[in-house]
Nucleic acid binder design. Structure first.
Lengths: 226, 226
DNA sequence: TAGATTGTTAATCGATTAACAATC
DNA sequence: TAGATTGTTAATCGATTAACAATC
């Protein structure tokens, strides 16, 4: 499909979603072309960087004109894997789980949460929208049967690893972990440990710096584990 | 207080919260000393990197022994500005706002949300725990009077910039933005744009890569704007 | 054509890691 | 002392930016 196996720089990948969001906005405003300089303004990334990043994926523009908005959008969707619907299960239907369940930003990304799980007997069977909450004992079974590839963990820290283990043994490929612990997984499983508190800490650090020095943090939200 | 104005590498700062979490865990387990190698295991960061990062802040260990858990914890708290209580206001008391309001990870970080704001008449006056929801028209007034330094934006994308503008004009110093837009602020204000969907996108990308190549993403959640 | 903006190479910059003497 | 683990320098690696010819 692609040439000689592109090696994507770690940080390029974290910038792509921002380009994507900006290009979607352009698209919705009806723009046909956009220059790297304009994207640069919108996402706070150097224009050369952007051209270079896009080049890596053969998302090419036209000299003197810029990038076709429609084409670029399509290309980014392809790179980011947004064309296929990504089915997921979510474990832990507390407040955080519920917030994620209707976080507006996911629509664009083709994320579809197809089943919910929790341990608390009093909410099992409850429906949120069209989705029923199942007991965690059903997790392995359902994930395996529906061939779900993504698991979202929103349980407490103490329960996270065991949930992860169940997910892995039922054939999950990627885990998005919001619990306050690092979970350990085999090499072939993709994990993203989302630690909101860590973001907060860096914010506080900047805040505690005195006057002039304060450089502001933005956020290609960064990085990736091996 | 400090010597010749330490210049902290951008990424060092994003790793610190992870060290902190690990060291807290050690502390709670009653450990007195921990080596850079042990921390390395726990947070998935090279041990040399850790020693170097800590060195920058004069968080020194003892050769042959390791780091004093208590001392290191204290030092990290100081660096991350966790000793002073950080008062914040939260604007937008929807599901996301409520989730953040009781996200367990914040306790450690001295974040205290002291007032809530929303526009929806039907929830104004409602109390969440001990905190009342005020109308957004009161925002400027209250922030200024209480000298609040941190604002958390959990409104929809369309409302975010105007909320930010109000916060800024009432003297806020830092903004933690969960809305799906980049907000623009003056240079001296610290912003962290938290885009959960972007995290999702990188997860999907890894997922769509074929077989052997799949290196997993972890996440010193990254980065900082200028 | 002249002006704009691209793709790409080369130069710079910063972050990571390897190596090791110093220290408990 | 011997063993462990540090602090720190030097070497490597990768990411960013400046410069510019090629192209529309």
């Amino acid at each position: 499909m692609n040439g000689p196996a592109i090696r994507v720089p770690k940080f390029t990948l974290t910038r792509l979603p921002y380009y994507y969001r900006f290009v979607c906005d352009c698209d919705e405003r009806g723009l046909k072309f956009v220059s790297s300089e304009e994207i640069s303004q919108g996402v706070q990334v150097n224009a050369v960087q952007i051209r270079r990043d896009l080049m890596l994926f053969d998302a090419l523009g036209t000299p003197g004109v810029g990038y076709s908005v429609g084409e670029l959008r399509g290309k980014l969707e392809e790179i980011l894997g947004l064309n296929n619907v990504n089915e997921a299960v979510l474990i832990g239907v507390g407040r955080l789980g519920r917030a994620i369940l209707d976080y507006p930003g996911f629509k664009r990304y083709g994320l579809s949460i197809v089943a919910l799980f929790d341990n608390a007997p009093e909410i099992i069977g409850e429906k949120i929208g069209t989705k029923e909450i199942f007991p965690v004992t059903e997790l392995e079974h359902i994930v395996a049967r529906l061939h779900i590839k993504v698991g979202i963990i929103t349980v407490s820290a103490s329960g996270a690893q065991s949930v992860a283990d169940i997910l892995i043994s039922s054939g999950i490929k990627a885990i998005w972990n919001f619990a306050q612990v690092y979970i350990r997984v085999p090499r072939e499983i993709v994990v993203r440990n989302e630690d909101l508190a860590a973001g907060l800490a860096t914010l506080f650090h900047h805040l505690s710096e005195t006057g002039t020095e304060t450089k502001v943090a933005s956020d290609p939200p960064l990085s990736t584990q091996l």
